[in-house]
Amino acid sequence: MTGTVPNALTALRLIVVPIAVVLLVVDDGAEGPARWWAFVLVALAAATDWLDGYLARRWEVVSAFGKLADPIADKALVLGVLACLVVVDGIPWWPLAILLVREVGVTIGRLAVASEVVIPASRGGKIKTTLQLTALLMFLVPGFPSWFDTIAWWVLVAAAVVAIVTGIDYARTIRDAARAHREGVAGAR
């Protein structure tokens, strides 16, 4: 039973994404009850990001599914909510574009080598995710003064910078994994 809890938390995070997106669309920038519910759901989803990894390590039930699905759930949450904030709140689109390109590239790269090796989230990737979630939560809180949004913006910019740096690092790791696999296959012949 304990082995399934971390994976269930990851799956729950994936379920929260469309609900939070719908709530933000319904709120349409009015900062009413739907925005508060979106904030609560995203905050809970962010907490499960930490909790699922902690429980998997503590209970020694780290799984290949979790190593792959956890980052995908993070990406879905961040990109889905950020896309809504770009549309509904008018946040500039370019951090979303940077994050989207980075996340799609890393995910495709991970999937390309998944049969040989699972590439878990790096420390830099975790920092990026923390910055992204912090910025999103700050943007989602209704009724705060504009200086709070300015801080959220700079946290989001920092997340975009870390995304670029870690994206390059992941590309190298994926390239090296693919090369090692090719060399292993060639050596076995």
Rank of each mutant, 00 (worst) to 15 (best):
V113K: 10
L23E: 04
R102A: 04
Y54Q: 07
A83E: 11
W36L: 15
F39H: 06
V16C: 09
S122A: 09
D28P: 01
F148D: 08
E183W: 05
L41Y: 00
R58P: 01
D52R: 02
E103T: 14
W94A: 05
A97R: 03
L156A: 10
L51F: 10
E183H: 09
C84Q: 08
M1Y: 11
L9N: 08
R172G: 11
N7A: 13
T107N: 09
D49I: 03
I119S: 05
E116F: 14
A180D: 12
T134A: 15
T129A: 15
A121V: 14
A158V: 06
S63W: 05
A121T: 14
L55F: 04
A135I: 07
E60D: 15
L12P: 04
T4Y: 14
V117F: 03
A160Y: 02
I91Q: 01
V81S: 02
L24V: 01
W154P: 00
V185S: 10
K128Y: 00
D49L: 05
L156Q: 12
D70W: 00
P145H: 12
L55K: 05
V157Y: 00
Y54G: 05
A135M: 12
V62D: 09
K75A: 15
I72C: 07
V118A: 08
G187W: 04
L55S: 07
W59M: 03
V185H: 09
R123K: 13
G32Q: 14
A45I: 08
V86T: 10
E183P: 01
Y170R: 08
G167I: 04
L133V: 15
T48D: 06
F65L: 11
W154A: 00
R57L: 02
A180W: 00
V141H: 00
I168S: 05
F39Y: 14
I119H: 06
